[in-house]
Amino acid sequence: MPAEVHVTIRDETDIVTARQRGRELAAIHGFSKTEQTFIATAISEVARNIVAYARRGEIVLATSQDQGRPCIVVVARDEGPGIQDVEVAMRDGYSTSKGLGMGLGGAKRLMDAFDLISAVGKGTTVTMKKCVR
């Protein structure tokens, strides 16, 4: 298993690939089935945002250790339009695409740590982490 897994995100099928890779990595590192599902669902949300708003980008999956516990780090990167107001975008129910607006907030709740950096015209990077309980 390589140290990092890169998945190019361009369309719907890449979303499925990315979340399957995330689940596999989580399973290998001893995450429970529920934790695997949380990680896969969070990956699905940010990958879907790449397809919906930036058209293309990538998901990078890596592992780390936190006080002896295995962790999974997910980075979702794109060079799309970026987000004007990140705080507003994070709000449950906020969507610029008639979506449910629960993707970012939901991903944050599914993971242990969540960070979103965005610059208008430059792109968006979401970094999320979850460690084995």
Binding site: K33, T37, F38
Partner: peptide, 14 residues
Amino acid sequence: IQPEVAFAMVQLGL
């Protein structure tokens, strides 16, 4: 709906 999927849905708020 699988139990893990149900847990995740609750976390998502949906």
